[in-house]
Design a protein around this nucleic acid. Structure first.
Lengths: 358, 358
DNA sequence: TGACCCGCTGACACCGGTGTCCAAGATCAA
DNA sequence: TTGATCTTGGACACCGGTGTCAGCGGGTCA
């Protein structure tokens, strides 16, 4: 990092380094080169790059041609410096579900492809007291073009008001309407969970257990209410004793299943609000010698790889993560009214559900 | 993006916008502010920031104090522009294992914490003909400080020689020695697989099947050779008919297991070279009515979440991904001889292995 | 005491772009 | 034809840092 030449004691007339500093990095062409070649000022080249209307068609074409010929790409750092804004998008998450994060990264990059933006990942801890300050420093230091917030961090209003205050664009990925549409990509968990409820009801289940997400997560509410709505269509209600808290973890699924399955009149089906907890239910069912789906039907949520590796493969709800990522990217890139349509979450029926034994 | 004021036709004397442009972004302090406050030139402040020895202790302290007081942080874009290098680290991967990628991100960020570097993710397709050109453009455009290559892309020598040519630092994360230590973080798959082999041999297995990784992956060779070495310690050899090709996918695990388990003298244990394939083996075992581990012992590799959700939980090999990430980060940050020690991969014994029935 | 050297500091140019503003050329009305 | 207006493009400053190099004060040596 230290470039300054240390004076050498004796030799006054150092011979100049012949060429090629430490990193060759093959001297890319700059806006000045293009301007010289096209016989215009650098500002005109800049106008062409930024699609300013203040350039005649002829000039524009001449310059564009040379840009293409020389494969010139403007330096994002220099551009950013002048714009007082970078071309980086921050992905802020605290999500135990690796599949979700990686898929979202893919979707976001799909969505910004070709526009010169890059994705900078920023995992963090939602419990941390310095969360807001930390994200603030990140956004400010990098002059982020925009920020994508994944659930459950996306539900943090302190964070979004900080970003508003900073004048930093953001998009929340969330399971419920929290904000204006322009700043939100909604997963609509309700539709998926309602379908799951209908599925179980249609199979003939009436004693249905629910293992919920953690208190304070918006998805907990959404998934539950969607589920109840689906049941209501079949005139079923969720009994209070069949609802237990979970934490979206395998262990909490085990714990929840133990509670539900030790009831005197135990449920014939359990909806676990994510796949990890559903896997916990499998484990308890095995311990208790219950066979799936004959003795117990199970539905999960997420369609992670785990769900199809379980035996029997888990009936679960898949959300369109890639499309949500693309949509989030489109919403960040200004001017993009660009309605990437996000399909709805849908039920994937596998073999963990069947009619109850009578 | 278009900031230039469009001339309005009539009004010649537009009233100047009173204040606060579009993004307030609370005017951060700059090197000039600090210089003025400390009564030194900006260059001196720059020297303090870059820990140049050419500053007297007194001056350094005075300036440092003001920097701290005002919470000044130099703008990475401006710094990068002058340095002809950014403070971004590119993470180049093409890895179906989401858990690995996310964990690696975590480890890398752990490793660069506090040093002002950011991690830019760049998923790509190892089959793509434009892979090298694509990564080259990425590295060049962003003037990346360094690149981290995850397996199996890390094995691509065309990629690394391009990076060398570009003068761009990189670190390969790989399962075998491919390069000088400074550019490599090795996972040492051999040690883990040897331990797996010893484990199975010690249980008394002699007919042991192997489902390998895809041809062309370095990890295929490493894992196999480690496994063979472990067996050799117990005077066992891997029979050719007990070795089948896989592709690190669930489906290829199913296929491989079908082949192995339909042999007349079928193996009593199978080592699948990753957890996904091991999950495929579970599925086939179920279909065939074989119980695990009584009729068939299974060992996987990766310790993904899937492994502990399977029933019975899978005996597998865990590699120290976070530590590998930290180590990779340390190797990129120059001057860091910083030996983050990477512990060895180790066997996690769960319930999918037992002595063979006699 | 003067010549010299050394260590520290700052003026200045520069990295590669963009915003502002003005001038030159083109167009149009009188 | 001339003057007014509009269009187009360029000179210049600036974004926020770093490299270069000259200058300055103080110590050493003859």
């Amino acid at each position: 990092m230290r470039h300054e030449k240390q004076r050498s004691a004796k030799v006054a007339t150092e011979r100049p380094e012949v060429s090629a500093g430490p990193s060759v990095t093959g001297r890319r062409s700059t806006i000045n080169d293009i301007a010289r070649l096209a016989n215009v000022s650098k500002k005109t080249v800049s106008r062409v790059i930024n699609q300013s209307p203040l350039v005649t068609e002829g000039t524009r074409e001449r310059v564009s041609l040379i840009i293409r010929q020389y494969g010139y790409e403007p330096d994002p750092q220099a551009r950013g410096l002048a714009f007082r804004r970078s071309f980086l998008i921050g992905l802020v998450y605290d999500n135990p579900n690796a599949q979700f994060v990686v898929t979202m990264q893919q979707g976001l990059l799909d969505g910004v492809r070709g526009s010169g933006f890059e994705l900078v990942v920023h995992p963090c801890n939602r419990q941390s007291k310095t969360l807001v300050a930390d994200v603030r420093a990140f956004a400010q230091r990098q002059k982020l073009y925009g920020v994508v917030l994944l659930p459950p961090i996306s539900e943090n209003n302190a964070l979004t008001s900080m970003l508003d205050e900073l004048g930093c664009r953001y998009v929340r990925v969330a399971s419920a309407v929290l904000d204006v549409p322009a700043k939100l990509v909604v997963s609509n968990d309700r539709i998926g969970t309602a379908e799951a409820a209908r599925h179980l009801a249609a199979l003939g289940h009436t004693r249905i257990g629910l293992i919920e997400g953690p208190i304070g997560f918006r998805s907990r509410i959404e998934r539950r209410e969607g589920f109840e709505a689906g049941l209501a269509e079949h005139d079923l209600k969720l009994a209070k004793e069949y609802c237990v808290d979970g934490a979206y973890t395998f262990d909490s699924g085990i714990e929840g299943a133990r509670k539900l399955l030790s009831l005197k009149n135990r449920p014939t089906a359990i909806f676990a609000c994510n796949d990890e907890m559903a896997a916990g239910v499998y484990q308890v069912a095995r311990e208790m010698g219950l066979s799936i789906p004959e003795d117990l039907s199970i539905v999960g949520f997420d369609d992670t790889p785990v769900s199809s590796r379980l035996w029997p493969p888990l009936t679960t709800i898949r959300w369109p993560i890639v499309e949500m990522g693309r949509s989030a990217a489109a919403k960040l890139l200004e001017g993009a009214e660009s309605d990437v349509t996000v399909p709805e979450a849908k039920l994937i029926v596998r073999n963990s559900t069947a009619p109850p034994k009578r």
